[in-house]
Design a protein around this nucleic acid. Structure first.
Lengths: 232, 232
DNA sequence: TGCTAATGAATTGTCAACAATATTGTTGTT
DNA sequence: AACAACAATATTGTTGACAATTCATTAGCA
């Protein structure tokens, strides 16, 4: 699934995948803000790689939905309109419910054990406020579940949505209230999986996604709904 | 939606979009077969564009799911395993049903008129056996409907699936029996839209997708389930 | 013969210079 | 002062050459 590069900085020259990851993180963790222009040479110097790689990375990031590009005008960090956010979240809801519905219940012991292991780590990461680990363990938790739906294409679509909504969801990661709530949600989800209560599972998985959206919307307060992603 | 380039060959130098479109058609209409290797310089000469453009096009086509690439090994036309085909069709079913369910009924006159116009053209294209037009009108018919669900992200996901399944669906386009049936299906779909029968609409839209898959599977007869898309 | 290692051709990956385009700043006219 | 035309700068797009990698063939050896 989430194709991580195995050994990162073992003195190997930076790869396209590395550059994509770097820029992705810059965007996720807010060093590059929505609607900010991305200048090829600037990033090229910052990361110490050729402009060529930056360009290629832009293409990838565009396909991931993290940046917009217009011919001869360059790239900028994608900014979602209020409507786009709502639409993407509706679809996230549809697909996650579909995944939850497709999991064969009651879950096998191996799945439950794996989830509990992740959940334990997640909890400890929350307590120590290791945000980056929280984020990555959260991903792992959910995709372990989604993959249990046993449809690779569904997992892939969810992967795409997760990437696109990173900027939205990562608002929540820093919020103590949300973190506490998420931990509880995860525990409940595991319970539903164990008890074989499919209806409850679907409900829990779906309910779990909305608080982060609310946080994001609140943070964006008075929302000016200007922008629109143009194709050319 | 389907971002076509307006004026094609008005003596303007070929664009990345052009190249992508060309290769796409080569794949769709079978001049490039599944699992066939795509050599950059070869295509570069064939189309008379620089190797760079071909490379960039490969990246795009990979993201569209039409080709697979592996580092230092090049690109090849994507080939679906039996399982992948089933999985992608399950998801196509889910999303199309979701779209059908979201259309506000009864449909407005403008929508109905538009669909009837497309349907009339479709019918004539079928009778004259203009396959390429059949294909494009078929797209237009369905996306007019999908867009009526009023969720751009949903439309975009369906667009992606349609592109990926082109190679599967275009088997059907050449089949007279399927064509006849499709024409009837479309008429029924318009009726359901007019009558405001949502349940029937969902059912029709869903039932419409499976015959083409059956045709494809039959054509692929004894299926060797070898291949697998590798990440690196 | 059957296996491994070395060679070479084919192909992809990378780079740096150059061309085309957009953006900004300046000048001159009314 | 307002506006338009022009010039200068900044940025992206394109090209061709070269480096690195893979793949197929052959040579060497037991």
């Amino acid at each position: 699934m989430a194709q991580q590069k195995q050994e990162k900085d073992t003195a190997t020259a930076p790869d396209l995948a590395d550059v994509v990851q770097w820029i992705k993180e810059e965007i996720i963790f807010g060093r590059l803000r929505p609607r900010e222009r991305l200048v090829e040479e600037e990033l090229s110097e910052r990361f110490g790689v050729s402009r060529h790689l930056i360009r290629a990375a832009f293409a990838d990031l565009q396909n991931m939905g993290l940046v917009n590009r217009r011919r001869n005008k360059g790239a900028m960090v994608r900014d979602f309109s209020a409507r786009e956010v709502d639409e993407i979240y509706e679809m996230r809801s549809v697909l996650q419910r579909e995944a939850a519905m497709r999991i064969a219940l009651p879950a096998g012991d191996d799945l439950l054990e794996k989830l509990e292991a992740i959940h334990a780590e997640f909890s400890s990461a929350v307590e120590n406020e290791e945000l980056q680990r929280v984020c990555s363990l959260n991903n792992e938790f959910h995709f372990t579940i989604f993959n249990a739906a046993n449809n690779q294409y569904l997992s892939d679509m969810l992967q795409r949505i997760w990437t696109e909504t990173l900027g939205i969801r990562c608002y929540a990661i820093g919020d103590p209230v949300w973190l506490k709530r998420a931990r509880g949600d995860h525990a409940q989800i595991i319970e539903a999986l164990r008890n074989g209560d499919q209806e409850q599972l679907v409900k829990l998985v779906d309910a779990h996604i909305w608080p982060a959206l609310e946080l994001y919307k609140r943070a964006h307060g008075g929302w000016h709904d200007t922008r629109r992603a143009a194709a050319e």
